[in-house]
């Protein structure tokens, strides 16, 4: 009897240690998993700081050589190793502005159509189709822009602009010169198509988040559909729309391949929108692999740093605004 009891006790204690061991293993696995996920989250932060540090490190030689003048000079001469970023910065800003001037009104009108006018069964297919525009890779826009869109513009829109707006005082210089096909205007138009889905889908989302009660009240006092959108929906959704626009702007500023195809890669600032120019991203894409000499490479990386800083500010502002409207809705 005693023996048996002892044996039983031994069994229990063996089971107990096995159980403790299994629990220890689980506890260990738990802690490992927890720290692994935390490390991955921190890695995302390190990624961004790594990008910033690498860009600053790479651009130091150029910034040391040229100083602040790098931002304000137009010349870009690989032979004499004199570099200035003004022409690419100008091109980036102008093409993005053209894109936003077109994409914002069109995107808002599509969002208006999708939320107020469109029959229910058509909303999803049209929404998806517009979002597919965002899924097409930028190189496709580039090849299409170069072989289809630019020749088309050269024959139709550009001669028309030169003959009409090119004769209007004040804005005439903007539309002077021969129709090249490729150039700032073409790049801006392609960017507009690429940015359109971002503006549209975010505007649609914030339009849909407007409380129906507000709209019904406005309809109730006899507003037309347009008046409801203009005086009720748009003011309510304003912050979100601006956030969407900034997000689109961030895309337009950093877009590379589509622009590289159609901008013409000319390092000069021309008054005419029809003239070839260059942007920050197009310059890097075109010249980086061919850049000889540390100063040349470093100047291109400095361009990348400028682009990153600009888009960082724009995107941070966009996120801040979208966060604000999310809080109000949530």
């Amino acid at each position: 009897m005693v023996d048996l009891a002892l044996q039983e006790g031994a069994v229990v204690s063996v089971a107990g240690t096995m159980r403790a061991r299994a629990l220890d293993r689980l506890r260990l696995g738990d802690a490992v998993f927890r720290h692994l996920t935390r490390a991955a989250a921190v890695a995302v932060l390190l990624l961004l700081s790594g990008v910033i540090i690498a860009l600053i490190d790479g651009s130091l030689p150029a910034l040391r050589t040229f100083g602040f003048a790098f931002l304000t000079t137009e010349r870009w001469n690989p032979v004499t190793e004199k570099f200035g970023a003004l022409a690419p910065i100008y091109g980036t800003v102008v093409t993005s502005l053209i894109a936003m001037l077109i994409a914002v009104p069109v995107g808002l009108m599509i969002a208006f159509f999708l939320t107020e006018l469109c029959p229910q069964w058509l909303r999803r297919p049209i929404g998806i189709a517009i979002e597919l525009l965002a899924g097409i890779p930028s190189i496709i826009y580039g090849i299409w822009g170069l072989f289809v869109f630019a020749p088309f513009l050269q024959e139709t829109l550009q001669p028309f602009l030169i003959n009409t707006l090119g004769n209007v005082p004040l804005i005439a210089p903007l539309f002077s010169g021969p129709p090249y096909g490729i150039g700032m205007l073409t790049a801006g138009l392609i960017l507009a198509i690429m940015v359109l889905p971002f503006v549209t889908s975010i505007s649609r989302d914030v339009f849909e988040a407007v409380p129906p009660v507000l709209k019904e009240a406005a309809y109730g006092v006899g507003c037309t559909t347009w008046e409801v959108v203009r005086y009720v929906v748009l003011p309510y959704a304003r912050v979100g729309v601006i956030g969407g626009v900034m997000l689109g702007l961030g895309r337009a500023l950093g877009e590379t391949m589509a622009v590289t195809f159609v901008i013409g890669n000319a390092h000069r600032i021309s008054a005419s929108l029809l003239a070839p120019g260059t942007t920050i991203s197009a310059t890097i894409a075109n010249e980086f692999t061919e850049a000889v000499g540390d100063l040349y490479t470093s100047s291109l990386i400095a361009l990348g740093l400028i682009l990153f800083v600009i888009t960082f500010i724009v995107l941070a502002a966009a996120r801040y605004m979208l966060l604000r409207i999310e809080r109000r809705i949530g």
């Binding site: 995302v44 860009l55 961030g250 950093g254 682009l307 990153f308």
Partner: peptide, 16 residues
Amino acid sequence: INDILLSAPSIVVGLF
């Protein structure tokens, strides 16, 4: 930060 990485210019990633 992740949202900013999400729409950061891809050419900058290449440089990095």
